[in-house]
Lab assay of single mutants.
Amino acid sequence: SEEKKKAKERLERLGASSELARELLDRANGNAEKAERLLRKLL
């Protein structure tokens, strides 16, 4: 979806690899905010 694509791009801008961004979104069930929080914990 367009929303998921935007979320993935945002995670990548924050420093996630394409693969990591995809994994985070999967774990967050597509929830962009939750995926971002997970990423911030990792960085």
Results as ranks from 00 to 15, higher is better:
S1I: 13
S1A: 13
S1C: 12
S1Y: 13
S1K: 11
E2P: 10
E2I: 13
E2S: 11
E2Y: 07
E2F: 09
E2N: 12
E2C: 10
E2H: 11
E2L: 13
E2K: 10
E3Y: 06
E3A: 13
E3N: 11
E3W: 03
E3T: 12
E3S: 12
E3M: 09
E3R: 11
E3C: 13
E3D: 12
E3K: 11
K4N: 14
K4W: 15
K4A: 14
K4S: 14
K4C: 12
K4R: 15
K4V: 14
K4Y: 15
K4P: 09
K4M: 15
K4L: 15
K4H: 15
K5E: 13
K5I: 12
K5F: 08
K5A: 12
K5V: 13
K5M: 12
K5L: 12
K5R: 14
K5G: 10
K6N: 11
K6H: 11
K6S: 12
K6W: 06
K6C: 08
K6M: 11
K6P: 07
K6Q: 12
A7I: 13
A7M: 09
A7H: 08
A7E: 05
A7P: 05
A7T: 07
A7G: 09
A7D: 08
A7W: 07
A7K: 08
K8D: 04
K8G: 08
K8A: 13
K8L: 15
K8W: 15
E9M: 04
E9V: 08
E9L: 05
E9Q: 11
E9Y: 00
E9W: 00
E9F: 00
E9S: 09
R10N: 07
R10A: 08
R10Q: 07
R10L: 10
R10T: 07
R10K: 09
R10E: 05
R10V: 07
L11K: 01
L11R: 00
L11P: 00
L11F: 03
L11M: 05
L11S: 01
L11E: 01
L11G: 00
L11W: 04
L11N: 00
L11D: 00
L11V: 01
L11T: 00
L11C: 02
L11A: 01
L11Q: 00
E12L: 08
E12S: 04
E12A: 06
E12I: 14
E12Y: 01
E12K: 08
E12P: 01
E12H: 06
E12C: 11
R13P: 01
R13W: 11
R13C: 12
R13Q: 12
R13V: 07
R13G: 09
R13T: 09
R13S: 13
L14Q: 06
L14P: 00
L14K: 04
L14C: 06
L14Y: 03
L14F: 05
L14W: 04
G15Q: 02
G15S: 03
G15W: 01
G15V: 04
G15E: 02
G15N: 01
G15I: 04
G15P: 01
G15R: 02
A16G: 03
A16F: 02
A16Y: 00
A16Q: 02
A16L: 06
A16N: 02
A16D: 02
A16K: 02
A16W: 00
A16I: 08
A16C: 14
A16P: 01
S17I: 04
S17W: 06
S17P: 06
S17V: 03
S17G: 06
S17K: 03
S17Q: 03
S17R: 03
S17E: 03
S17M: 03
S18E: 12
S18R: 09
S18A: 14
S18P: 15
S18L: 06
S18W: 03
S18N: 07
S18I: 07
S18Q: 10
S18C: 08
S18M: 07
E19Q: 09
E19W: 04
E19K: 09
E19Y: 01
E19D: 12
E19C: 13
E19L: 06
E19A: 10
L20H: 04
L20K: 03
L20S: 02
L20D: 02
L20M: 09
L20C: 10
L20R: 03
L20Y: 01
L20I: 07
A21S: 04
A21M: 05
A21G: 01
A21I: 09
A21L: 06
A21K: 00
A21V: 07
A21C: 03
A21Q: 02
A21N: 00
A21F: 06
A21T: 03
R22G: 11
R22D: 15
R22Y: 11
R22L: 15
R22K: 14
R22S: 14
R22I: 14
R22H: 11
R22C: 13
E23Y: 08
E23D: 11
E23L: 11
E23I: 14
E23C: 07
E23W: 07
E23Q: 12
E23R: 09
E23N: 08
L24E: 00
L24A: 02
L24I: 08
L24R: 00
L24W: 02
L24M: 06
L24V: 05
L24Q: 01
L24C: 06
L25I: 08
L25A: 05
L25G: 02
L25T: 02
L25S: 03
L25C: 07
L25Q: 02
L25R: 01
L25W: 02
L25H: 02
L25K: 01
L25V: 08
L25M: 08
D26R: 10
D26H: 08
D26W: 06
D26K: 09
D26Q: 11
D26C: 10
D26V: 07
D26E: 14
D26N: 09
D26A: 11
D26L: 08
D26T: 06
R27M: 14
R27Q: 13
R27S: 08
R27F: 11
R27V: 10
R27P: 01
R27H: 08
A28T: 14
A28W: 04
A28H: 04
A28L: 07
A28E: 05
A28F: 15
A28Y: 12
A28D: 00
A28G: 02
N29E: 12
N29R: 09
N29M: 10
N29T: 04
N29Y: 08
N29P: 01
N29I: 04
G30D: 06
G30M: 05
G30Q: 07
G30S: 04
G30T: 01
G30H: 05
G30L: 03
G30Y: 05
G30I: 02
G30P: 00
N31E: 06
N31V: 06
N31W: 05
N31Q: 05
N31F: 04
N31L: 05
N31A: 04
N31S: 08
N31T: 01
N31D: 15
N31R: 03
A32C: 09
A32P: 10
A32I: 15
A32T: 08
A32E: 10
A32L: 15
A32D: 05
A32N: 04
E33Y: 06
E33H: 09
E33P: 04
E33G: 08
E33A: 13
E33D: 14
E33W: 06
K34C: 13
K34W: 14
K34Y: 15
K34S: 10
K34E: 15
K34D: 15
K34M: 15
K34P: 01
K34F: 14
K34T: 13
K34A: 15
A35W: 03
A35C: 02
A35S: 02
A35N: 02
A35L: 07
A35G: 01
A35F: 04
E36K: 04
E36S: 03
E36Q: 03
E36V: 08
E36L: 11
E36W: 01
E36R: 03
E36T: 04
E36N: 03
R37G: 13
R37A: 15
R37K: 12
R37D: 15
R37L: 09
R37N: 14
R37F: 05
R37Q: 15
R37E: 15
R37P: 00
R37V: 07
R37S: 14
R37H: 14
R37M: 11
R37Y: 06
L38E: 14
L38Y: 04
L38R: 05
L38C: 09
L38K: 05
L38V: 07
L39P: 00
L39F: 06
L39A: 02
L39I: 01
L39Q: 00
L39W: 04
L39N: 00
L39D: 02
L39H: 00
L39E: 02
L39V: 00
R40Y: 06
R40P: 03
R40Q: 13
R40C: 14
R40A: 11
R40G: 10
R40V: 13
R40F: 05
R40D: 15
R40M: 08
K41A: 13
K41Q: 15
K41S: 12
K41P: 04
K41G: 12
K41W: 11
K41L: 13
L42P: 00
L42W: 08
L42I: 14
L42V: 08
L42G: 04
L42C: 12
L42E: 07
L42Q: 05
L42H: 05
L42F: 08
L42M: 13
L43V: 07
L43I: 11
L43D: 05
L43Y: 05
L43T: 06
L43A: 05
L43K: 05
L43W: 06
